[in-house]
Every structure is written in structure tokens, then in C-alpha cells.
Design a protein around this nucleic acid. Structure first.
Ligand code: MN
Ligand code: MN
Ligand code: MN
Ligand code: MN
Lengths: 218, 218
DNA sequence: ATAAAAATTTAGACGAGTCTAAAGAAATAA
DNA sequence: TTATTTCTTTAGACTCGTCTAAATTTTTAT
């Protein structure tokens, strides 16, 4: 049996190596789940014991196959529940993450299958994040972060890579949603901020915002 | 903050006093949640501390107003989720209780409200059990247990008072569902078992089964 | 290459929730 | 009314997940 705390550690390791493509450090994990490095060290020993991770003291950690499958299935549940909350219960996209953090730990394969079917087997959640399939495949897109685009490129918002409420509320205020057409007008070299055009209106956003917006060109 | 364990104790006390209409004993609670009497004693001290129960050592326990409201809200969530699972996800009525035991602990008032609305504000769950309203009202019926009926009485099944899968599967096998017309033909005085007619077929059931079937006469 | 800084692990403690065994209180029987 | 049985509480211990402080290892800077 895997506990709720263990599931959260697996998810943290998964998220870190998704971004960095390398082993997760103790401090990075501590940071991700807002706990002490000491607690992380303790837990890594336990997860190693259960063969959910590959861990060498002082050398960082990665998920084992078993741990990776578990992490993926939690992400799958998280994103299916977010989709349910937005598509069926009329939550808006900024309100669903915290509830999904609870729902993702519900244990019932039958439930996940039926929820998936009820939702019409969605490939992406309300934030444009890919929903792993039952057998662990993760849908891909060729979208890239807005801050990496060439000036004068046109594209469409395919998703975000951050589900914080304050960020999503700001996007809504800017009229940016999944599917919104966007054009990169200018990059300011001083602070890497960007001038963009959204639905015939010019806007100016920071690099910090742009890097969390995934754009599909043309 | 109330923990998952505390919620389960409140629910147990609620369930016991629902049946007996008197204070819950330590042993009854231990029985209800399959734990030791020692653990129950420990927990009662803590719940008392939080003013969720009224407890005097050796004298039994009842819920405080605060505790009662909490218990009712957990039952509400449990039954709403069961309704969701059956009505929306096509589970059958014997498969939902265990998952609902997990889902009932999800904390989000917004979620409960929206789920309630999505389901069309149901008054009874798939087992005919009343769903407490947002402000704690519990719908009533004038249904009575089948084993308390007079011989030759006709009625309709309004609900069951037990959620166990084996019981519900047996009912399904007997063609007994919510709404099924039923007639009490004969009570055997030797073992209180009952002859009944269900949809033009005669059946024979034990008193143990009959007492968990709620019937509305006529 | 050595010293200083940063990262990580270990030691020791704590609260929550559980257990078994033993002691104490209440109910029942003689 | 006294003895016995049953119920309940307390004592002491254990696991899980967390913490702070201290020790150790690794990395970085001089
Ligand atoms: Mn999320
Ligand atoms: Mn998401
Ligand atoms: Mn139930
Ligand atoms: Mn029910």
C-alpha cells in the first residue's frame, strides 16, 4: 500500500525531472512540496525500500519504472478530475487545482476508467496539460513557450504550464484562454518583456508570464 | 482542522445514535469502525477537547451541535457521491459505497454545492437513503421495514438500510430494486422468515433481509 | 589545493493514531 | 450485599510523517 504522503513525493520527483530532465535533488523536492530537506531524506529512504525510486545518497533521485507508473497515474487522475470540474461542474480553470490535489488520491481504477469515459476520453485538461492514457502514454504537441518565439510570429495558445489561481486569473483578464490567437510583436531586450496582440488588442506582458504560455505556431 | 480519522468517529457516533436513539458506548463505536476500545477512549478525549462531542467518562457519548452538523455534512457528501457514481458514471448500487467512503472526505463546499446542482438536487441516494440538504435537513418518508408489515399488505420498496455489496447483489438477484412493488404473503412464526410476491413471482426471504427493506404501503 | 559555503544526511524529538496488557468502574449474578 | 463478569480507561509502546540541530559530504571559491 502506498500512502498519500508517498504519492505526493513521487509526484514531486516526476514534476522536477519533467522540467530539468535530470535527477531530482533533495532540496528541489523539499522546495516542491514545502517541507524540510531532512523530511525528504527520510522519505527517500522509505521509497527506496519500496523500490519506487532509484536513489544513491548525496547523488539525487529518479523514479523507478514502478514509481514512474504510479506518478503518471496520479497525474492522470489529477487532470481528469480537473476536466470534470470545469466541463461538468462549471468551475473556472483557476479554481480546480486545489480540489484536484485531493481527488487525485482517491483509489479506484474503475472510477478513473468510468470518469474518463464520461468525459469522452479527453486528451488535454482545462489548462491544456496532456492527460496520460490508461496505459501511461502522454499526448504530445509541438507547442513551444511564447518567450521562445521569433518576433512577428502568429500562433494559438495551446496550454499553460502553471496552474496557480493568480496566474490563471491574470490570463483571463488579458483575454487569454486555450485556443486564443496570439501574435508576438516585439521583445524588449532590456527585461525580456513582450508586446503581443490578442484579438486585435495590443498587450504587454512579462517574460515570466510568457514562459508559461505554450503556443502552436501559424 | 478536522482529520479524516476524526470524521470517521463522528460518523460512527451519528450512525449508532440514529439506530438506538441513545448515547453511543465505547464498545459500540469500536465495533462500528473496527478498532479497539482503547483507541476509541483516546479519540473521545480528543473530540471532547475540540467540543465536537458531549462525553462523560464511563457514561457514553453523543454529538455536540457542532459535531452533529459535521457528521450530517459528511453523510450528505457520501450520498451525493453515491448518486453521482450511479446516475452519471453507471456504477451499480452495490459498487459505490467503498469509493464514497473515500470521496466523502474531500473538502470543498463549492464542490458539494455544484455536485448537488449537477445531479439535480436529489433527495435520496441510490439506496433510497435520504440526502441531507445544505442546511442539514434530512428528508423523511413514511416507509417502514418489511418485517414490521401486516400479512397481505402491498407496498413499494423505497430504500434499504444497509449498503453492503453482498446484500445489494442478493436483492438484485431477487429482482428487488428501489420502486419495486412488493406484497407480504406470509410470516413464518418459527424463524420470522417471510413469503413475498415480487412482480408476480413468489419468493421467500429471511427476517434479516426483510428488516433492511423499507416499504411504503399501498 | 585548501578553505569556505552549500547541500545532504543523521540524531533525537514530537503529535496523531493505533495496539496490547493491565487497572479501574459499572453492571449483573449469587 | 458481596462476588463475578463486563465495560471502559490508562499505561506503555509502535509506526508514520514531520521538525530542528548537529554532523557529514559535496561543491565552489580563493
Ligand atoms: Mn492542477
Ligand atoms: Mn491542470
Ligand atoms: Mn454508502
Ligand atoms: Mn447509500
Amino acid at each position: 500500500m502506498i500512502t498519500l504522503a508517498e504519492e505526493n513525493y513521487l509526484k514531486a520527483i516526476w514534476a522536477i525531472s519533467l522540467n530539468t530532465n535530470e535527477k531530482a535533488s533533495t532540496n528541489a523536492i523539499a522546495d516542491e512540496i514545502s517541507t524540510s530537506a531532512a523530511s525528504v531524506s527520510d522519505m527517500l529512504r522509505k521509497l527506496q525500500e519500496k523500490e519506487l525510486i532509484k536513489y544513491e545518497k548525496y547523488k539525487g533521485v529518479e523514479l523507478s519504472e514502478k514509481g514512474g507508473n504510479l506518478a503518471t497515474s496520479i497525474i492522470r487522475k489529477h487532470r481528469l478530475w480537473e476536466t470534470f470540474l470545469v466541463n461538468k461542474l462549471a468551475f473556472n480553470w483557476g479554481e480546480v487545482h486545489d480540489v484536484a490535489e485531493q481527488l487525485e488520491h482517491i483509489k479506484s481504477d474503475e472510477l478513473v476508467d468510468k470518469l474518463d469515459s464520461f468525459l469522452g476520453f479527453p486528451k488535454f485538461d482545462p489548462h491544456g496539460e496532456p492527460i496520460p492514457t490508461k496505459d501511461g502514454e502522454i499526448p504530445t504537441t509541438n507547442a513551444i513557450p511564447l518567450n521562445e518565439l521569433q518576433t512577428a510570429t502568429k500562433g494559438r495558445v495551446m496550454g499553460v504550464t502553471l496552474d496557480e489561481k493568480s496566474f490563471l486569473d491574470y490570463l483571463t483578464q488579458l483575454n487569454i484562454r486555450i485556443g486564443t490567437k496570439i501574435e508576438l510583436l516585439e521583445k524588449i531586450s532590456f527585461d525580456q518583456s513582450l508586446s503581443i496582440n490578442i484579438e486585435n488588442t495590443n498587450q504587454h506582458i512579462s517574460n515570466d508570464v510568457a514562459k508559461h504560455l505554450l503556443i502552436k505556431i501559424k
